[in-house]
Design a protein around this nucleic acid. Sequence first.
DNA 1: CTGAAAGCGCTTACAG
DNA 2: CTGAAAGCGCTTACAG
Lengths: 352, 352
Amino acid sequence: VKKPKSSIKDVALLAGVSTATVSHVINKTRFVSEETSRKVNEVITELEYLPSAAARGLAGKESKIISVIFSDISNPFFTSVFMGLESVLAGEGYELILVNTGEEIENQEKALRTMLSRQIDGLIIAPTGRESHMLNQLVDVGIPVVLIDREAPVDNVFLVDLDNEYAAHQAITHLINDGHQQIGVLLGLPEVSTTRTRLNGYQKAIDEHNIPFRPEYLFQGHSRIEGGYEGVKYFLDLDQPPTAIFSMNNMMTLGVLHAFKEIGIECPNDLGLVGFDDHDWGNIFTPSLTVVRQPTYEMGVIAAKMLISNTESTYRNHERLTGELVIRESCSKKCQQHFKKNISHKFIPKSE
Amino acid sequence: VKKPKSSIKDVALLAGVSTATVSHVINKTRFVSEETSRKVNEVITELEYLPSAAARGLAGKESKIISVIFSDISNPFFTSVFMGLESVLAGEGYELILVNTGEEIENQEKALRTMLSRQIDGLIIAPTGRESHMLNQLVDVGIPVVLIDREAPVDNVFLVDLDNEYAAHQAITHLINDGHQQIGVLLGLPEVSTTRTRLNGYQKAIDEHNIPFRPEYLFQGHSRIEGGYEGVKYFLDLDQPPTAIFSMNNMMTLGVLHAFKEIGIECPNDLGLVGFDDHDWGNIFTPSLTVVRQPTYEMGVIAAKMLISNTESTYRNHERLTGELVIRESCSKKCQQHFKKNISHKFIPKSE
DNA sequence: CTGAAAGCGCTTACAG
DNA sequence: CTGAAAGCGCTTACAG
């Protein structure tokens, strides 16, 4: 039951003009007399004509497609960034191809390869951080790319990220001021740049307070729920468990809360918690969560504007935003002894 | 610093064959001697040749683009569906254009119009439910479309959804068995089909238990956080407030929990709660939430498979899945009097 | 103020 | 086993 689509030729024929004229009235790319212009538009609506994006792309114009490559779209951080992107790009007539790499470099490379064969007008990517052959190739070919959230070893790209070191420093300092000296860290993925910069902020904060660095207070949580969950178990099994936890992202924070509930840990009295990324449940949970809020939507907006601004004047190549420490209830320590002494006997491992 | 991309002509020239042959070795669409085939592939890697998707599309082949139109990508329901879609489609070489309508019919129509001008291979959409001219046109033009989660007035489309009536019936029956006779409902958007079917399930369940239907127990929450929050306030202001709330989606449930925390409502003793959609925080919250879990990821998988299965045999035009009632702690009522009597004096309106 | 025509980079009958 | 060539539906110098 296919209805044949009409082409620019059909329009030209019916309107009694050339295809060039039709093209020009559609794109407003040269003057056309009002009369013919009207006639052409009439025929267009009559035939329900829509120009073929493929033909347009081939003929050398922009594709109006921008590719977005994220690592984990189930993370609200990225959906919020996406909405920020969309808010400016949709208005400009762009469509977004979204691909989810699941943090796998092979998926990223494969996606980038496809993008290279498409006529994309730009790329917005939260890169894995490892060397990427395809990313360099995309840049070489002249496609504008903006890195978001994370750095990567490429030149001639835009970058919008958070001042992660400052944000982490702020969070840890807050924890210290609330009486914590032993602070466990749930690390994000090692190959992602934010893990390093947030750790730097931690280091700097404890240094400033002459708190010794303890490698056993670092746990690799892989930015995943399970990692946060396992991390709590790990910390409590230490001879001298930390009195507070710094979680480097919201997924791990969720895992921490899981563990807290399961083990019966009362936060912040038993164990303090400061997280990265804010969300509605952060406010609902008891205690409500003290977190570093990232301006996620705004990051998307800026990235999008960078990409489509041909005037380089508006933005620098690198826009660094500032996080906001949202102080709620999960940090303030009231008793100083280590939590382990009191509850280790009620530890219930997760049933698998 | 643009590096010129090489075309199929360049490859043909360097390999000493025709473009037809190059095309055929790439697509494996007719036999080519092993020797020339090898030679062609060598040249391809040497030139880092990648076929132009635009040209391919124009020349009549598939575009390998599938369009996904959702109403709210910040809702985990949709991100989970998206990941299900991606899990099968990425493997088949498809790219997904994602657009977020924010539940606005105009945005939907605009997006569909663009899709019509693109050479998309298929469309997966959670439609607003209202009559859509563009949707019909897409179908007319021969593009396969699958409706997901919701129905819409179109013919010749696939549909994958939940048995919403059954799911709601199950949830309400559970509430009734836990001792609730007054059950307030937070309605989803009126134009979305699931709102109607879930309400039917509610109606059926109370009918079966001879519980009178009370229109004042229905509150329009618009499937949004604010709606859930306002709903709780509304219900508690009734002369005879309900003893339990049925929330038709996870966003409204979040709003309910906000209100609970703010007003100081103890769930389930003060007010029971059963929600639609499951999420990690459902388990973390105290009390943990009793909800209808939808097989979201699976819905995505099935929708994707429907779309690309040319053999109509595998799937019917309509696949209806079954939700699972996950019983946790937020329903069982222990005291029978209406909650209002005890706490209305501590009511603190949200500061705006 | 408007047209004729080349060209974008593929695919695919048609031929041999 | 492989080529020459038409054609997909646009855009854009070039001409007038």
